[in-house]
Amino acid sequence: MSDHKKRQRKVRLFGDVYNLSEMGVGTLLLIPSIVFLVFTFVIPVIQVIQLSFTNYNTVTGAMNSVGFSNYVYLLTGSSSANFYQALGHTAVYAVVRLSFDLTLALLIAVMLDSKIPMKKFLRASYFAPVVVPIVASSLIWIWFYDVNIGPFNQILSALGLPTSKWLLGENTSLMSILIFSIWKGLGYNIILFLAGLQNISDTYIDAGKIDGASNWQLFWRIKFPLLRPIVSFVLLMDFIEAFKAFTEVDVMTPNGGPMRSTMLLVNYIYELAFTNGRMGRAAACALILFVIIFVFTIIQRKIGANKTVDYD
């Protein structure tokens, strides 16, 4: 009994009463999390900001404070061409990927939500490319895109159509990466949309049917407004993913592709830091990327919050 009493010892802190042993255990259990958060998040974030104001160069070993000159280098004058090129490619990549991902995934999810046989198999098929390591599936697609012995060009020439240079063409390389990225990411969004559709209570649908709504109206007037939170979540996640894209680009078109045509922002940061050794510039570029993602997140939250509907 005395043991039990000991554990019940109370302590008053910030106006609340806490159990002393619970406090101790609680804090202890969080220590590993805190240690890793400090070393992999807090310190790196502080250092990346500091680095962005230095000319740290791993090749020459220079390390001086240079104020805003990394940002000036990236954003203004003739030196900024590479940055704006990468930003432009990333924006195109993000917009195209988002539009296809959203419309195709929503369409397929709506179709999967109807009465059809083999539903589980079909869902799994769309989901499969999501879980497979990107490098492994990139290897398959590198072959698909091969100019001479790739199935794509073989089919095109069999149909008597002009063949394409795919990954090797300055104007087609980014498009080829996009086709791959859409194939790879589609399943993730389908799963989310499908779950959202299945969460919609039948009473809303039945009410709509009694009022004589067509399937088209049922979707746009009832289902879509209810799906809006998920649509806006998918929009945000996909945007962030697109701005973080690196792996498939690096594997399928190393060093930025023909004439730097697939140089996305992360690839540019990688080049600055690990090919050129320009850590200061790379840090500044990474922070600019972060600001872009952050601003988009805020905008999405503001818009998303206004547009939720509730029929209850």
Binding site: L29, A286, F290
Partner: peptide, 27 residues
């Protein structure tokens, strides 16, 4: 468990999700 500072830790943890690895990668 109940103890002070829980909210602070949660905020801290969640904010780490908003920073992409490309930002922390260089340091």
């Amino acid at each position: 468990l109940r103890y002070p500072g829980k909210k602070l830790f949660s905020t801290f943890l969640i904010s780490s999700m908003f920073v992409p690895t490309v930002v922390t990668m260089i340091p």
